[in-house]
């Protein structure tokens, strides 16, 4: 009889742990931040998007992003207009996506508060051009929320973004992209 009670207690405990330990499964957010920044001697250009969809699989490290190009907000309306109409052609190519992996997913302990690092590798698609991207990401686990930060650079010409010579001095060849997202466990 005691063995049955112990077995029952063990099953209940394991079942409870399965539902409360969020170290596995998918973590996601629809409100991630992406900023890009171009610095030249003539002008600094920055824009922000606060509705970035992103998720990762805590077991495999699979990582995905989707961001609407038109939803980048610039300080100046004219910059935003030129970005969308002249450079990104965002009505024709409305989204940019990233699919890749958190290469050292096992080093990120989602069940324990702390700061962890892992390389990220994957493919970034803009304007139907796909290129390999890699960077280092920092994960801060705190109270069930996983904050991830990473930066990398993109060269506009790699993605067939044509900058007219008249404004070439104002736009850098190395655009710094900063990602900042708070993931929560997707139930």
């Amino acid at each position: 009889m005691n063995k049955i009670i112990i077995l029952f207690a063990a099953i209940v405990t394991l079942g409870f742990m399965a539902f409360t330990n969020h170290s596995g499964g998918v973590y996601k957010t629809n409100t991630g931040n992406i900023n890009f920044f171009s610095h030249t001697a003539v002008e600094d250009i920055t824009a922000d998007n606060h509705k970035v969809k992103t998720a990762f699989d805590a077991e495999t490290g699979k990582l995905q992003f989707s961001v609407l190009i038109k939803d980048f907000e610039f300080p100046k309306a004219l910059m935003q207009e030129h970005f969308n109409e002249n450079y990104m052609e965002s009505t024709t190519y409305p989204k940019s996506t990233f699919t890749g992996t958190i290469d050292k997913m096992s080093a990120v302990n989602l069940a324990k508060d702390g700061t962890y690092k892992s390389p990220i590798t994957g493919k970034l698609t803009m304007k139907d051009v796909t290129k390999d991207v890699s960077t280092m990401a920092t994960f801060v686990v705190k109270g069930g929320i996983v904050n991830a930060k990473a930066t990398f650079t993109v060269n506009p010409t790699d993605y067939h973004i044509v900058i007219p010579k008249t404004v070439a001095a104002k736009i850098s060849n190395e655009i710094k992209v900063s990602v900042d997202a708070d993931y929560t466990h997707a139930h």
Partner: peptide, 17 residues
């Protein structure tokens, strides 16, 4: 209106918005 975010191909992201 900014468009529709998400894609069937990005299976982890879930619903489209």
């Amino acid at each position: 209106c900014m468009g529709c975010n998400g894609s069937e191909e990005l299976d982890l992201l879930g619903s489209k918005d």
